[in-house]
Computed example of a mutant assay.
Amino acid sequence: MQLDVGKILEGKVTGITNFGAFVDLGEGKTGMVHISEISNGYVKEISDHLKEGDQVKVKVLKVGDDGKISLSIKQAQPKPDAPQSGNRQTQRPRSGGPRNFDRPKNNAPMSFEDMLNKFKQSSEEKMSDIKRNMDGKRGSSYSRRGNRS
């Protein structure tokens, strides 16, 4: 069997490690799917997504000179619809209510831009909280120093 980069094949998961999964491609060939190539979303535990014996579709990413085969499950799947990045406006919550930075309820993967916007928003809010708290502490310590003399 000829393994060409970009080719999509079927295989069977033969082993799971903390960094990826090994897939038997047949004819004595085995490749590895790195943890980052298992799903479009964040993968904390591979066993949440795959089990030994699962039949999976994989895309050949690289065939090394040493015979190592790099595979991807997420690239073998159809691409999820990406939001159009035309007129996007981010809205910041005006209230001091609880912040929810979890993924949407429908488990749809977030785009990089969405994750970056959430991170920036969270970072700005935390920095303003820190500055507000530090200003209050500086004011009280200065007034105590003035009373010592």
Rank of each mutant, 00 (worst) to 15 (best):
D54Y: 06
D135P: 00
A108V: 13
K118I: 01
E124M: 04
R138L: 14
Q121E: 12
S95C: 14
E45C: 06
G15F: 09
R92Q: 10
N87Q: 07
K120M: 14
D102K: 11
K12V: 15
Y142M: 11
T90A: 11
N40P: 03
T90M: 13
P83E: 04
N100P: 04
H49W: 10
R132V: 02
L25C: 09
G41F: 07
I35E: 00
E124N: 04
G139T: 14
K79M: 12
N107A: 10
P98A: 08
K29M: 12
M134T: 14
S149F: 03
K79R: 15
E52I: 15
V33T: 02
K7D: 03
G86I: 00
D114P: 00
M1Q: 08
E37V: 05
I38N: 02
T17G: 12
R92N: 08
G15Y: 07
V60P: 00
K29N: 12
E27W: 02
E37K: 01
Q55W: 10
K7Q: 09
Q77N: 12
K59R: 14
E125Y: 08
S149I: 13
K29G: 03
M115E: 07
Q121K: 07
Q89M: 07
S123K: 10
R144N: 13
E37L: 03
G96H: 06
Q2L: 10
N117K: 05
Q89S: 05
L25T: 06
